[in-house]
Design a protein around this nucleic acid. Structure first.
Lengths: 95, 95
DNA sequence: TTTATATTTAAATATTTGTTTAATTATTTA
DNA sequence: TAAATAATTAAACAAATATTTAAATATAAA
C-alpha cells in the first residue's frame, strides 16, 4: 500500500500517469515529454510499475506502457472512508 | 498541490487522518496513539495542516485538530480523470 | 555479423525526509 | 507569581529519494 502513495508523491510520475490517459505509450515517447534523462524516466516507470499504477508489454524492441487498474483501486479504497465526511461533487447522471 | 501528495505519503500521517474520522482530537490525544515522540507528531500535524487536510482551533491550552475538506477535494480532483478509465465500485444507493 | 536503436541497470551524489533531544511559548492552577 | 501542563520550534543526524553519467541488455536493420 505504501508504495502507491510513494509513487504518486512525485510530480513527474503524476505527469506520466496523466500522459498515459491518452493511451498506451512507448518508454521513449514518454521520456520525450520530460526535460530529464531516460534513466531517470525509466526509474520512475519502474516505481509506477511496482505500485501497479502502470503495466507494460513488449513489442519488439519497444516497451509499451499502459495504465493499470489495481493501483488506482488501492487509492480509491483508501479515500473511501473520507468521502463520508465531505460533500464532494456529485455525478451529473445516474450511475 | 504537491504538498497534499507529500502529506499522504507517510503512514503515520495517514493514520492520523484516519483517527480524525472519529471526530476532533487534541494534539496530545493524537500523539498517544503512536509510539513516537510528541515533537514528531507535531511535525506531522504541521505538514497535514500545510496540505489543508486538517485544521485546528485553540481551546485553552489545547489545540484541537479536525479534518479539513480542502485537501481531500484536491486529491479527489486529481483522481477524477482516472476514474474514467476503470470500473470502480458503484454506490449502492442513488446519490 | 556488425552497427544502430530502445531501454534498463548500476554506481555515485546532492537533496529531502522523519526522528530524536533540548529549548521555547502559552495557558492553567496552586 | 511560581510551578505544572500542553504543545511547538530548533538543531542535529541517519535514512530515503531523484537525478546524473556510464555500462549493460535486447532487438532490429544493414
Amino acid at each position: 500500500m505504501d508504495i502507491v502513495f510513494k509513487a504518486i508523491n512525485d510530480p513527474t510520475r503524476r505527469e506520466i500517469l496523466r500522459f498515459l490517459t491518452h493511451g498506451p505509450q512507448n518508454a521513449g515517447t514518454i521520456a520525450q515529454q520530460f526535460n530529464m534523462t531516460k534513466p531517470s524516466i525509466s526509474h520512475h516507470l519502474d516505481l509506477l510499475k511496482q505500485a501497479q499504477l502502470i503495466d507494460f508489454s513488449k513489442n519488439g524492441q519497444f516497451l509499451v506502457y499502459t495504465l493499470n487498474k489495481s493501483g488506482f483501486e488501492t487509492i480509491h479504497a483508501w479515500f473511501q472512508p473520507f468521502t463520508m465526511f465531505f460533500e464532494l461533487p456529485k455525478p451529473k447522471i445516474r450511475l
